[in-house]
Computed example of a mutant assay.
Amino acid sequence: MTNTPLTDTVENRLFPYSPITERPRIDWPGGARIAAYIGLNVEHFLIDRPSTSIWQGTADLVPDALNYGWRDYGSRVGVWRTIDSLDRHGIRASVLLNSAVAHHNPQIIEAGLSRNWAWLAHGRTNSILQAGMSLDEERRFLTDVVDTIAAATGRRPRGWMGPGLTETFHTPSLLAELGLGYLLDWTNDDQPYPLNVPGMISVPYSVELNDLLLFGKGVTGPEFVQIVKDQYEQLRADSQDSGRVMALALHPFVIGQPFRARYLDQALAYLAAQPDIWLTTSDEIAAHYRRTVTPGRPAA
Rank of each mutant, 00 (worst) to 15 (best):
T2C: 04
N3Q: 11
P5C: 12
P5N: 13
D8R: 12
T9Y: 15
E11C: 04
E11W: 05
I20Q: 09
T21H: 11
E22G: 10
R23V: 14
I26M: 09
I26V: 15
R33S: 12
I34G: 02
I34T: 03
I34D: 01
I38L: 04
L46V: 08
I47L: 15
D48H: 06
P50L: 06
S51F: 05
S53E: 11
Q56E: 10
V62T: 12
V62R: 09
V62F: 06
P63I: 12
A65Y: 14
L66F: 11
N67P: 05
N67H: 04
Y73M: 07
Y73Q: 11
G74F: 08
R76T: 07
G78N: 12
T82K: 06
D87E: 14
H89R: 08
I91L: 03
N105V: 03
N105S: 09
Q107I: 04
E110A: 06
A111W: 07
S114R: 15
W117P: 00
W119C: 01
G132H: 13
S134G: 15
E138V: 11
R140L: 10
R140Q: 15
R140H: 11
F141W: 15
F141A: 09
F141T: 04
V145Y: 00
I149E: 01
G154F: 08
R155G: 10
R155L: 06
G159N: 04
G159T: 03
M161F: 05
L165P: 04
L165T: 07
T166H: 07
F169V: 13
F169W: 05
F169T: 14
F169S: 06
H170R: 08
H170C: 10
T171V: 03
T171A: 05
T171W: 03
S173E: 14
L175V: 04
A176D: 03
A176L: 08
Y182K: 02
L183M: 15
L184R: 04
D190K: 03
Y193L: 11
P198E: 04
S202Q: 14
V203H: 00
P204A: 11
P204S: 12
P204G: 09
Y205G: 02
Y205S: 07
S206R: 06
V207M: 12
E208T: 13
F215L: 14
G218R: 07
G218A: 12
T220C: 03
T220N: 11
G221D: 13
V225C: 07
K229S: 13
S242V: 01
R244Y: 01
A249Y: 06
L250Q: 00
L250N: 00
H251A: 11
P252Q: 09
F253M: 10
F253P: 08
V254D: 10
I255E: 10
G256H: 00
G256M: 00
Q257V: 07
R260N: 13
A261M: 13
R262K: 14
L268F: 01
L268I: 00
A269G: 14
A269C: 10
L271P: 02
I277D: 06
I277F: 05
L279F: 15
L279K: 10
L279I: 07
T280G: 09
T280D: 11
E284R: 14
Y289P: 01
R290I: 09
R290G: 07
P295A: 09
P298F: 01
